[in-house]
Design a protein around this nucleic acid. Structure first.
Lengths: 152, 152
DNA sequence: CTCCTTTATGACAATGATTATCATTATCAA
DNA sequence: TTGATAATGATAATCATTGTCATAAAGGAG
């Protein structure tokens, strides 16, 4: 039980010459548990609760690594800090975002995902051929006003 | 000739209780001329060439205003600073982005736009109904490796 | 299991983009 | 032309993120 997922990650890390360390494991745990998009500081605080040695720098460094590995997506909504979440990876809970222009609230939606993914795959194929670009992931944000920020 | 566009903007500003000032006019000019996504500093430097009084703060302030007005889109690629460009507004030259995960190069593409826009409109309709969210704009980014950053 | 090389960590300082402050100036409706 | 109000620009302040470096931990070799 314990460690089955850890072992999977261990493999992914070691493939790149990296090691599976406690901070890394805990960061992954936090990311996995909270389906939300978290800031580096959010993650730092969560990990800190059970491992008070963790340093904020380490969190940043590992997020950067995970982004490079393609395991984590770094997103920007409107609040000045980056948000991180697991990237699609063909996962079940892939989703897209509605971002409120006023209060910066973010709604994750998973409706229409089948159609969207299907459509995106077609587009991706065309684009990667034309631009010789290896597409690994995508981000779709709709911007506007959420229910409570609509003036009219 | 001169001023027809300015008058249009004057109207948009005054509708919100804002004024059309020289810095604003020049910032809009720069944004209109360069189809590229520009950073606040890029814009500052461009305006500065012909109006050396401009302050960086003013550029930030006005970009923020334009974003609020829905006239300008604020985007984040991977270089630590925000990029700005006119938002769609049903314009001819609406486009989406391919962002390289390694060198942060951004390719604007306008292929498949007809299909994409058609598809997005359908999605937007469904989402705005379900989430009572007033959608004004969207962002689509594909992430991966550009031609010259592909290792394999 | 212990040792050793290498990678990773954490405290701290430094950077750099963005924002707040505030006295001064410019816009524009009357 | 004038006056109320919005906008500007210089400066300082904030705050997320990155660089530095001495120390600690991982994990392969023996």
């Amino acid at each position: 039980m314990r460690g089955s997922r850890a072992q999977c990650w261990r493999g992914r890390f070691q493939g790149g010459g990296y090691r599976l360390t406690k901070p890394r494991e805990l960061i992954l745990d936090v990311l996995a548990k909270s389906k939300e998009h978290l800031s580096a500081e959010d993650i730092f605080l969560s990990v800190h609760k059970i491992y008070s040695n963790i340093g904020l720098t380490t969190v940043y460094r590992n997020l950067e690594l995970l982004v490079e590995m393609g395991a984590v997506a770094k997103l920007h909504f409107g609040n000045g800090k980056a948000s991180y979440e697991f990237s699609r990876d063909g996962e079940k809970d892939h989703h897209h975002h509605l971002v409120c222009r006023k209060c910066n609230k973010v709604i994750d939606y998973a409706d229409f995902m089948k159609e969207e993914e299907e459509f995106l795959q077609k587009i991706e194929k065309g684009l990667s051929k034309k631009y010789k670009f290896e597409i690994q992931d995508h981000v779709i944000h709709f911007h506007g006003f959420c229910k409570s920020c609509q003036t009219s």
